[in-house]
Simulated scan of single mutants.
Amino acid sequence: MSQETENIKEKDFRYNWVSSSRFLFYVQVFCVLAFVLGGCYRLYNQRYKGKPDVEIQSSTKYTPEYK
């Protein structure tokens, strides 16, 4: 009976710190990777589309043109 409880404790997440730390490490790596990829995707979707064609008054240019 005691051998069965020791065997269960070896496989249990709460008692075996080696397997639990490995599991938590992989969860942490997955979360960081998901966060980085999600941020890159969000930046890609909201990227700068290009120079807009804006009409500027000729009197406000660096070298103004008056009528």
Rank of each mutant, 00 (worst) to 15 (best):
R14H: 14
K49I: 01
K51D: 03
M1C: 05
V18I: 11
L24D: 03
F13Q: 01
S19D: 07
F23I: 00
V18F: 09
L37G: 02
N45R: 05
F23Y: 15
T63P: 02
R47Y: 08
T60G: 04
F13C: 00
E6N: 11
R47F: 13
Q57W: 12
E6L: 14
E55W: 06
V32Y: 09
F23V: 00
A34S: 14
K61N: 13
L33F: 15
P52A: 08
R14F: 14
I8R: 04
K67V: 00
F13Y: 11
C40V: 07
F35M: 12
K51H: 03
T5P: 04
K51A: 05
E65N: 13
F25I: 01
F25Q: 04
S20N: 07
Q46K: 00
S59Q: 13
Y15T: 10
K51F: 02
N45G: 00
Q3Y: 05
K61S: 04
V18E: 11
K51L: 07
V32E: 03
I56A: 03
P64I: 06
S58W: 15
S59T: 11
E6H: 10
Y15N: 13
C31Q: 08
E4I: 03
L24N: 12
R47N: 06
V54N: 06
K9E: 15
V36H: 03
T5H: 11
E6R: 14
Y15S: 15
K11I: 02
V32T: 13
V29H: 08
E10K: 12
K11F: 08
F13P: 05
Q46A: 05
K49L: 07
K9A: 14
F25L: 03
K51Y: 05
V29I: 09
I56Y: 07
Y48K: 03
K51E: 11
V29D: 10
E10G: 01
Y48H: 10
S59E: 15
I56W: 09
D53Y: 07
C31M: 12
F23W: 15
I8P: 02
C31A: 10
E4M: 06
T5Y: 14
Y48I: 06
R47E: 10
S59V: 12
Y41N: 06
N45I: 02
T63L: 08
E65G: 06
F35V: 04
R42G: 03
S58L: 15
D53T: 10
A34V: 06
P52I: 01
V54D: 02
Y26H: 14
K11A: 13
V32A: 11
E10W: 12
Y48C: 07
L43V: 02
